[in-house]
Write a protein that binds this DNA or RNA. Structure first.
Lengths: 108, 108
DNA sequence: CAAATAAGCAACCAAAAAGTTGCATATTAA
DNA sequence: TTAATATGCAACTTTTTGGTTGCTTATTTG
């Protein structure tokens, strides 16, 4: 399909999915599909689809208990996004920019 | 349309766009649309569209000089993404998790 | 000025994404 | 064991997205 980080970026690019993920992160216990659906305007099937996308990106882990499927958030994969971002930090952060300029000057 | 952070997330969710952005970030000088196109497989129009998306997200700034349009990367908006991510860091980073547990214990 | 170059605009296309409804199936409760 | 509940699966619709081609316009350059 597409590479891992793209799957991840796409998963969090959708606002509904970010909301669902957030709800799972701050939940005190795992939430079933129906429980999640009750918190959102969209249909249960819509939620299922989003959960599948999040699961595929590694952001959600599911524990099946009987007929219920309890969803847990897993923020770990976001570490990759964080790494991606980190590289560009030096280009927006002025203090780091200054550091870069300093090193350049030193070299010259 | 959609909120700012979603525009931003969607802009960086596309791998081609991330590549273009990266090329602009590491470029020693601003690049024209044609110059960018030469570095990628897709058509000039395709590049133009991506640039427009990046510009709309604030990740690219354009300086028009005569018939040419020179594109500069601007990483600053990524700071917002970084902030978004930061919140979830405590849920993946074990040391911070430990810190949270510690504070909870202290409270109790 | 004529030719070449840089780019925009518009229309189009195919595939993907976000969401829906309907129905089947498994599990639990009355 | 029948009814209710939780979910999955499949088909379908609408919108968005990533990309294309064709044509026009503006700016250089020979």
């Amino acid at each position: 399909m597409q590479d891992k980080i793209t799957t991840l970026f796409k998963a969090i690019a959708d606002p509904t999915r970010r909301e669902i993920f957030h709800a799972l992160v701050i939940a005190t216990s795992a939430l079933s599909i129906t429980q999640i659906s009750n918190q959102f305007e969209i249909s249960r099937q819509g939620v299922t689809k989003h959960i599948k996308t999040l699961e595929h990106a590694g952001l959600v882990h599911i524990d099946s208990m009987g007929r219920e499927r309890f969803c847990n958030a897993n923020a770990k994969p976001l570490e990759e996004v964080n790494k991606w971002i980190k590289f560009y930090e030096q280009f927006w952060d002025n203090s780091l920019q200054g550091l870069g300029d300093y090193l350049d000057t030193k070299k010259a």
